[in-house]
Measured scan of single mutants.
Amino acid sequence: MEVRTIKVFTTVDNINLHTQVVDMSMTYGQQFGPTYLDGADVTKIKPHNSHEGKTFYVLPNDDTLRVEAFEYYHTTDPSFLGRYMSALNHTKKWKYPQVNGLTSIKWADNNCYLATALLTLQQIELKFNPPALQDAYYRARAGEAANFCALILAYCNKTVGELGDVRETMSYLFQHANLDSCKRVLNVVCKTCGQQQTTLKGVEAVMYMGTLSYEQFKKGVQIPCTCGKQATKYLVQQESPFVMMSAPPAQYELKHGTFTCASEYTGNYQCGHYKHITSKETLYCIDGALLTKSSEYKGPITDVFYKENSYTTTIK
């Protein structure tokens, strides 16, 4: 009895394709271990004539594949690729409408935090270190965002349907971005203890939790000093293409032309909904596939993004 075979390709990165001759009487799992086709788990399936010449994702289970996976995804987590594939199996079914010149995501599976993050990423200057993220990001900007969303979920250790947080998501993504040249110098002034300067680099240099107003941050924000008295913390120097200011959701007025974009969060910790506000020729609110415009805006804002380049204080 002759062994019926077909020729397929296996890959971990969709760049390096490895030619395989597979036995049609055995499952993919018996031949390769966990195997995925377009995100779908085909591990328990036997090869079919229609699979001839198709590319299958496999887990990096030998040295060659491990090197290829690390170079593309910059992670050695053995569960990463499987999590990416199972997320992709959902995100490829989502709709990605162009809204006001940006790629958004039609609401499904509690994905409003991903839509808000995706919209924000198209408006701030950011370059990702893992080629996987950078490639998928370019495709997302062009309207094909399924891979990018699935990668975000995998890097953030999230599953489809789980509630997510924009600030946490951005923080994970910033860790995989090139923020080497970003720098922030802060000064804390206390009447009792004097003053202390701190220099922050990388992710810490672009994120701040405690106030939404970048102007206020430049002037000074009140913080408790270690001595128990009130101290003032203010920005001395900022070198970065953008800054992200966050605070627990509270009524906040966004003035046209003073910011790049913002995240609105309605609801409580267990259950809520994100919308995205962007400042173009007027203010726009993007909620999944829905767009509304207004000249002014007041609502429960939790993150505001500002364009920056270089700032030095005039406070002496």
Score class of each variant (00 low, 15 high):
residue 284 Y to A: 14
residue 80 F to R: 03
residue 19 T to N: 10
residue 254 L to T: 00
residue 166 V to K: 03
residue 228 G to M: 01
residue 231 A to L: 03
residue 123 Q to V: 06
residue 38 D to Q: 12
residue 220 G to M: 01
residue 93 K to P: 04
residue 120 T to N: 12
residue 18 H to C: 08
residue 209 M to C: 13
residue 181 S to G: 14
residue 100 N to Q: 11
residue 157 N to D: 10
residue 263 S to R: 02
residue 305 F to Q: 00
residue 114 L to G: 05
residue 249 P to K: 02
residue 49 N to G: 10
residue 90 H to A: 14
residue 131 P to F: 03
residue 213 S to V: 04
residue 313 T to I: 11
residue 80 F to A: 04
residue 183 K to F: 10
residue 72 Y to C: 08
residue 20 Q to T: 14
residue 57 Y to W: 13
residue 228 G to E: 04
residue 52 E to H: 13
residue 193 C to P: 03
residue 308 E to P: 13
residue 109 D to W: 04
residue 113 Y to T: 05
residue 150 A to L: 02
residue 29 G to K: 09
residue 173 L to P: 01
residue 80 F to C: 04
residue 53 G to H: 12
residue 175 Q to S: 10
residue 8 V to A: 09
residue 179 L to Y: 00
residue 175 Q to M: 09
residue 192 T to S: 12
residue 122 Q to K: 01
residue 116 T to E: 03
residue 126 L to E: 04
residue 251 Q to M: 15
residue 235 L to Q: 00
residue 39 G to A: 14
residue 25 S to F: 15
residue 40 A to C: 11
residue 103 T to K: 01
residue 81 L to T: 10
residue 224 P to C: 10
residue 94 W to Q: 05
residue 116 T to Y: 05
residue 154 A to P: 02
residue 160 V to M: 00
residue 263 S to A: 15
residue 304 V to P: 02
residue 239 E to I: 12
residue 86 S to Y: 09
residue 75 T to W: 05
residue 122 Q to H: 03
residue 88 L to F: 09
residue 310 S to C: 10
residue 94 W to S: 02
residue 105 I to S: 01
residue 179 L to F: 10
residue 282 T to E: 13
residue 105 I to M: 04
residue 18 H to P: 00
residue 168 E to F: 06
residue 246 S to W: 01
residue 247 A to T: 06
residue 195 Q to W: 08
residue 139 R to V: 07
residue 144 E to V: 07
residue 270 Q to I: 10
residue 230 Q to F: 15
residue 315 I to L: 15
residue 144 E to Y: 12
residue 185 V to T: 10
residue 59 L to F: 15
residue 205 A to G: 01
residue 201 K to V: 13
residue 297 Y to W: 10
residue 170 M to A: 02
residue 252 Y to H: 12
residue 178 N to H: 08
residue 303 D to P: 00
residue 5 T to I: 09
residue 265 Y to R: 02
residue 42 V to I: 14
residue 93 K to A: 08
residue 80 F to K: 04
residue 150 A to S: 04
residue 149 C to I: 09
residue 4 R to L: 13
residue 52 E to F: 11
residue 72 Y to S: 10
residue 306 Y to Q: 01
residue 275 K to P: 00
residue 208 Y to W: 10
residue 249 P to Y: 00
residue 126 L to C: 09
residue 23 D to W: 14
residue 15 I to R: 12
residue 114 L to F: 06
residue 248 P to H: 11
residue 261 C to R: 00
residue 299 G to L: 00
residue 146 A to D: 08
residue 3 V to G: 12
residue 210 G to K: 02
residue 153 L to H: 04
residue 314 T to L: 15
residue 189 V to N: 13
residue 183 K to M: 09
residue 290 L to S: 13
residue 161 G to R: 05
residue 163 L to N: 06
residue 177 A to D: 00
residue 207 M to W: 06
residue 261 C to L: 00
